[in-house]
């Protein structure tokens, strides 16, 4: 068993503790990674409740599937990989549930009506523009720029070739650059 004093453990030790069934290890895993996992889920799903559901499924799958995890790998990309898959599943279910013009996808989004936001709020403008990207571009952009995953890690998470990931990221950047310019955002 690992006590409270040992809670700051590196990835292989944490994996070993999870495999031994240490309940504190589960808490440690959640505490350490729930921010990044929730951030990705929220960015992808634009809905707090759905994001929390996806985050919960991610951790449950990770802890229950810890014996299938290669402990020589870092945990974070693996968790984000599971989270990305949960988000894609949730988006697919949502697309089936809702009509094409369904409104839940924008339920929690920031106000996207033109002319309402401050053109100098660069981060806010980019945030809104990211929310309007198609899901695969948004996922790649978020994993790369927000979660700091490498091309290879994203390719592994999405089960796509690295070239596809690079293409999607490039298209996401082009769309974002056009969107920002069309909304009157200019560099100072």
């Amino acid at each position: 068993m690992i006590g409270q004093a040992d809670l700051k453990m590196d990835d292989p030790v944490l994996v070993e503790a999870l495999r031994s069934g240490d309940p504190l290890a589960s808490r440690e895993l959640i505490a350490r990674f729930q921010g990044v996992v929730f951030g990705l889920c929220y960015r992808m799903l634009n809905h707090r409740h759905d994001a929390e559901d996806a985050m919960q499924e991610t951790f449950i799958r990770a802890i229950r599937g810890i014996f299938g995890f290669d402990p020589s790998r870092p945990i974070r990309p693996w968790l984000l990989e599971i989270a990305a898959n949960r988000c894609r599943t949730a988006l697919a279910l949502r697309a089936r549930r809702l009509p094409p013009a369904g409104g839940r996808d924008v339920e929690d989004r920031a106000d996207v009506r033109p002319g309402l936001s401050d053109p100098d709020d660069l981060a806010g403008e980019l945030e809104r523009a990211v929310g309007r990207l198609r899901p695969e571009y948004r996922l790649v952009f978020t994993l790369y720029h927000e979660q700091n995953l490498s091309y290879e890690e994203i390719a592994q998470a999405l089960e796509r070739p690295v070239g596809t990931v690079k293409t999607w990221l490039h298209r996401a950047r082009v769309e974002l650059a056009e969107e920002l310019t069309s909304r009157g955002v200019h560099r100072s």
Binding site: L122, A123, E125, L126, E127, H145, E146, R173, V174, L176, A177, E178, L180, T181, V185, H186, R187, S188
Partner: peptide, 17 residues
């Protein structure tokens, strides 16, 4: 495109910060 990418870079700096 150059101007657009410059704007994006500045927005990215603000966003990640």
């Amino acid at each position: 495109r150059h101007h657009r990418f410059e704007t994006l870079r500045q927005a990215l700096d603000a966003w990640t910060g």
